[in-house]
């Protein structure tokens, strides 16, 4: 790594972004890197737009303010594109990982300056039976995309971190969802 990697997650309360960001930080640290996961807490409850930041570096991270110029933006819900601007400050040529089955023409033109990785995280979650209260959890499928995209993280360290967090059936579903994502996602 030659610079600090900055990721900004955009989702809604209940999507599990804090967990996904924390897990990513743990994977990076296990790989001997430094990482930071900053959740932004407000009055938000389930459904409200939320943000989480992840920083990863090969040097200790001292910056603690919000991520303003991310390298990667993750969007769990395409409607957020119309409610807030998740692309604000995203570096030109940066990655947008977005949870969609297929991008619309309007979305495609909106995202044209960036490298877009569309992923049907809902379908992956359902395939792995990863649900909470009947609602598919998109956080782990999106984390799976990062595992594939980031060359300093691999599936082994990802599994190791998930194993420290969960056990039994829940662990199996999470690993399944992560692996499905790694398999199906196409990175241009």
């Amino acid at each position: 790594m030659t610079h600090m990697l900055e990721i900004r997650w955009h989702g809604r309360g209940g999507h599990g972004l804090v967990s996904a960001s924390n897990l990513l930080a743990e994977m990076a640290v296990k790989k001997g890197l430094y990482a930071q996961s900053i959740p932004i807490f407000g009055a938000e409850r389930r459904g409200a737009p939320t943000r989480v930041f992840t920083r990863i570096s090969d040097k200790p991270i001292r910056t603690r303010s919000s991520v303003k110029n991310p390298d990667i933006v993750i969007i769990t819900d395409r409607h957020l594109l119309n409610i807030i601007n998740p692309l604000e400050g995203l570096k030109k040529g940066g990655y947008v990982i977005i949870n969609v089955d297929e991008l619309t023409e309007a979305e495609r033109s909106r995202l044209q300056d960036f490298k877009v990785i569309p992923v049907n995280a809902v379908e992956i979650a359902l395939k792995a039976d990863l649900k909470v209260g009947g609602i598919p959890l998109v956080n782990i499928p999106l984390l799976g995309v990062l595992v594939k995209l980031l060359d300093f993280i691999d599936i082994d360290v990802a599994e190791e971190v998930l194993k420290e967090r969960w056990s039994g059936e829940i662990l199996e579903k999470n690993i399944k969802a992560l692996k499905y994502a790694v398999e199906v996602v196409e990175i241009a």
């Binding site: 960001s21 924390n22 930080a25 430094y34 930071q36 996961s37 900053i38 959740p39 807490f41 603690r64």
Partner: peptide, 9 residues
């Protein structure tokens, strides 16, 4: 939050 809820090594 900036420290209390931020995860780091």
């Amino acid at each position: 939050f900036i420290v209390s809820h931020t995860s780091e090594p």
